[in-house]
């Protein structure tokens, strides 16, 4: 692999992202809201719930059943814990949404702009181009997710009065989620964008169709809040393996589609 080709494409993609208001919004808005909303929730609801320290934790019986260590917690603490877990799950939507927006623009945008042919006529290999485009979509998404998570933890330290609730945020499962799952989910979005780009001519269509990929994450969050499942380090490791396998399968399909001749003659 010629790294100068990869860095040239990466550099150009970044130049375009910086000049695209739509992409900048797509990169900054999801982390902003996904970080801000739970912090506001913690700031407002936290104090209300803490005042009910003498309440009955039986309101969260199903969750307490899954996590017996919560039995000694107050209702307020359990409620805040549940809210935070819910929102932390939504952090996993960030790499999906951001990567999908960038990858859709990067690939379908070039297709619409008819700039792929002159690009493919250069000595760059299609693998290098695909790798660079994937990296250009993944880097901002993963970095934005990590930055949002760090901001959330740092600000949360001041807003979450309960030490137990705060330290629950530092559970290793969230490290697995951020360091392993987030990049894999980001790659999933890139792969989906590549596959869809072969058939779709509109950036928005890729985002709309590809947007369904966030549904499992939403369902995961809801299932956890309602106490149907317990997300722990093991479930995240299993999830990462599963998504890794799906990534590999879709990546193979994407590599097969992302060939010079197919792009120029078969992509519609």
């Amino acid at each position: 692999m010629n790294l100068s080709h990869v860095t040239a494409v990466l550099r150009r993609e970044m130049q375009e992202i910086v000049k695209s208001r739509g992409l900048l919004l797509a990169i900054f808005l999801p982390p902003f809201f996904i970080t801000l909303i739970p912090l506001i929730a913690v700031a407002i609801l936290g104090r209300v719930l803490e005042s009910e320290s003498g309440g009955d934790a039986g309101d969260f019986a199903q969750i307490v059943q899954l996590m017996p260590e919560l039995r000694t917690w107050s209702v307020g603490e359990v409620a805040m814990f549940v809210i935070l877990q819910q929102f932390l799950t939504f952090f996993l939507m960030m790499p999906l949404i951001i990567s999908l927006s960038i990858a859709a623009q990067s690939i379908v945008g070039e297709k619409q702009n008819k700039s792929l042919e002159p690009l493919l006529a250069t000595p760059i290999k299609t693998g290098e181009l695909l790798f660079a485009k994937g990296l250009a979509a993944m880097l901002p998404a993963v970095l934005a997710t990590w930055a949002a998570f760090i901001i959330f933890i740092v600000v949360g330290r001041f807003l979450i009065a309960s030490e137990r609730v705060f330290f629950a945020l530092l559970d290793p499962k969230w490290l697995i989620a951020m360091l392993v799952l987030a990049p894999l989910l980001s790659l999933l979005s890139v792969n989906i964008a590549v596959v869809l780009s072969a058939r779709v001519n509109d950036t928005r269509a890729v985002q709309q169709i590809g947007g369904f990929v966030v549904l499992p994450i939403v369902l995961l969050g809801v299932a956890q809040t309602t106490g149907f499942i317990l997300l722990n380090a093991l479930t995240f490791v299993i999830g990462a393996i599963l998504i890794g396998v799906i990534d590999l399968l879709i990546l193979q399909l994407g590599v097969r589609l992302f060939q010079r001749e197919k792009i120029l003659t078969q992509w519609k």
């Binding site: 100068s4 080709h5 860095t7 040239a8 494409v9 550099r11 150009r12 130049q15 375009e16 000049k19 695209s20 702009n113 008819k114 700039s115 792929l116 042919e117 002159p118 690009l119 006529a121 250069t122 000595p123 760059i124």
Partner: peptide, 27 residues
């Protein structure tokens, strides 16, 4: 060198940035 039927330029970038990108790809 190839001039394709459609110019296929990166419209948000300026002329120098467009050419610089391709010059890098050509080494």
């Amino acid at each position: 060198g190839i001039l394709t039927e459609a110019p296929g330029l990166y419209e948000k970038l300026n002329a120098v940035q467009n050419l610089d990108f391709f010059a890098r790809l050509y080494g």
